[in-house]
Write a protein that binds this DNA or RNA. Structure first.
Lengths: 353, 353
DNA sequence: CTGTTAGCGCGTTCAA
DNA sequence: TTGAACGCGCTAACAG
């Protein structure tokens, strides 16, 4: 096998045939077995592989799909990436990863560069949605599937989680365990998920007729551990909940740390529910009950939607809503009514004295 | 701004000039301001953006860099991805993500497809290295930088961690805390990191003249939580260490879970050290002391090496070794000599009763 | 300073 | 069944 770059012309010369014949044989089009053999052999010897760029220019497809997420480090996006990578690779596409920040302007720049045609389609998961961003998405030359909520009048394929329903699951679960003073640690309210989760929390609390209190809701600056630590301290300084729902697993881990630091037991003193159901919910000690927003399924669905649109550009717009589930773990397991005495213990807690 | 696809020819027609002039203006080459204006205007109106594929075919560069890792889900690779994404994007390249499994054959297939020229270079981090893989790397037409160890006679750019030195750091740290029965939970020994870490552990123990024991070393089936749980159970069934070093943070978290389950305190009864210093080491309760193998720095260095080679293909081969650090956290903090009584406590432990 | 033209490497008509 | 020739959209070398 040669290591030099070889072209159709070189293979053709070596096989003593025309480049058209080489192209045909390698693409499996009808040819005499005699010719096919010669070509195969020549191609083999030269280690020939068709140039992707030239092929793309000719056929008008790059066989690449772009995925743009706000933060490559966020476990949720990692899950999505993982899944998209699988689906897309299986369909014969390569995955181009674009880490835009949460800044809508950067995403607009990205969309414009997408029109350079380096990919056949885009999966976009915006953290903040502005009218400008929507306009840009609308006027994109290439198909886009949005992962996340979009205003109802936007005619773009999209798949989103029902995080309001997720908050309902969390609140209901805690209420059924007898908790009433259910606090909420949110992320930034000016993000799409932040706004949706706050709305969901409020609705769920009202519906259950549980006491609402401004001091029982705090918003972290960001969906990160560091911001969560500050937010949890603030919350516990101004409020005495018997349960906390967090808009994110990272925020839940932060809460867990602060609770431990203050000598509060989970779930005995305070039950804890996270959201996203990422690996860290399982890894934590105690493990954290979490609302599974089905990030992998959302990603998979979005990827398939995009693949479908690529093969049928005129298909009607799809809007898919994925229903959440609740994964119950130690942070809410076997919890008696508040105020009662913990005798049994689930036996799987860390740091037992 | 139009949404239809526009070409140089269309812009030229609209501006009433030649396509060459359009190309020049848009690439910032000298032109009269009169002409430049006309062209800019026309391009603007048509929403023209140069086609990436055609440009690539012409200039022979795709402005894409590929990154191939064994497992997109592994936190270490996520760190690397994050960093590579930054460096590469800043340099004007797009990142193509290839998730090969740990199977060398898949990686060979990947390398062959790379010769299709869809990227200008590759960053490869193989979990297992076979002679065939090395041959394929050697004969690649495109530049490759390997992240990880390579036999000394392979003339390929590469950057690796000194995980043997890392094991020395871990063992030394524990020894200085007075621990002597230092056990080791490794990953699969037939992987590059697995082999290196076992060798490092053995060397470090011998050097410190600490007691070695077959029962004190177990190998998990995989570098995952699930495999780690089994391995930790096995270890504790057959051995009574006062410290455990794990080849990986995930394995360390698994050990933490098993220790908690058995009522053993960390660090009082058993001190724990992980490896890789990923986010989960910080997130855990207690937080885990971990050998920082500098995955971000390794990735950054490798990416820069590749960029350098792209601009100077004849540069001499670089082999960089990144030295590890130790990040001390709660899982080994303030630990007195074994057998003595814990009175002080660092005050930042979880699950205090 | 600007226009014309020749390919980059491939797939795909059209003739033979 | 096979070969010759064209063009995808662009940049660069050459003319004018």
């Amino acid at each position: 096998m040669e290591t030099r770059k070889s072209t159709l012309a070189l293979v053709a010369e070596r096989a003593g045939v025309s480049i058209a014949s080489v192209s045909r044989v390698l693409n499996g089009l009808p040819a005499s077995s005699h010719l096919a053999e010669r070509v195969q052999a020549a191609a083999q010897e030269l280690g020939y592989v068709a140039d992707a760029t030239a092929r793309s220019l000719k056929v008008g497809r790059t066989e690449q799909i772009a995925l743009a997420v706000a933060d490559v480090g966020n476990p949720v996006y990692v899950d999505m990436m993982h899944e998209v990578s699988r689906v897309v690779t299986d369909a014969g596409y390569r995955l181009v990863l674009s880490s835009t920040g949460s800044n809508p302007d950067d995403q607009i720049t990205l969309l414009q560069s997408l029109n350079r045609g380096y990919a056949d389609g885009l999966l976009l998961s915006p953290l903040r949605v502005t009218p400008e961003l929507i306009d840009t998405i609308r006027s994109s030359r290439l198909p886009i599937v949005v992962i996340g909520s979009l205003p109802p009048d936007v005619e773009v394929d999209n798949v989103r989680a029902d995080s309001a329903a997720g908050m309902t699951l969390a609140v209901a679960h805690l209420a059924e365990l007898g908790r009433r003073r259910i606090a909420f640690i949110n992320g930034p309210v000016d993000t799409v998920p932040g706004a949706a989760r706050l709305a969901g929390y409020t609705a769920a609390m009202v519906k259950r007729e549980l006491p609402m209190n401004d001091d029982a809701t705090v918003g972290a600056e960001d969906f990160t551990l560091a911001a969560g630590l500050t937010a949890a301290e603030t919350l516990l300084d101004q409020s005495t909940p018997d349960a906390i729902v967090c808009a994110n697993d990272l925020l839940a881990v932060a809460a867990l740390k602060v609770l431990a630091r203050r000598g509060l037991r989970v779930p005995e003193d305070i039950a804890l529910v996270g959201m996203d159901d990422t690996d860290i919910a399982e890894l934590s000690i105690p493990s954290i009950t979490s609302v599974d927003l089905r990030s992998a399924k959302r990603a998979r669905t979005a990827a398939r939607l995009l693949l479908r649109r690529l093969e049928d550009p005129s298909a009607s717009v799809s809007r898919v809503v994925i229903e959440p589930r609740l994964t119950v773990r130690e942070s809410t397991a076997g919890t008696p009514a508040p105020g009662s005495i913990d005798t049994a213990g689930s036996g799987v807690r860390g740091g037992a004295a």
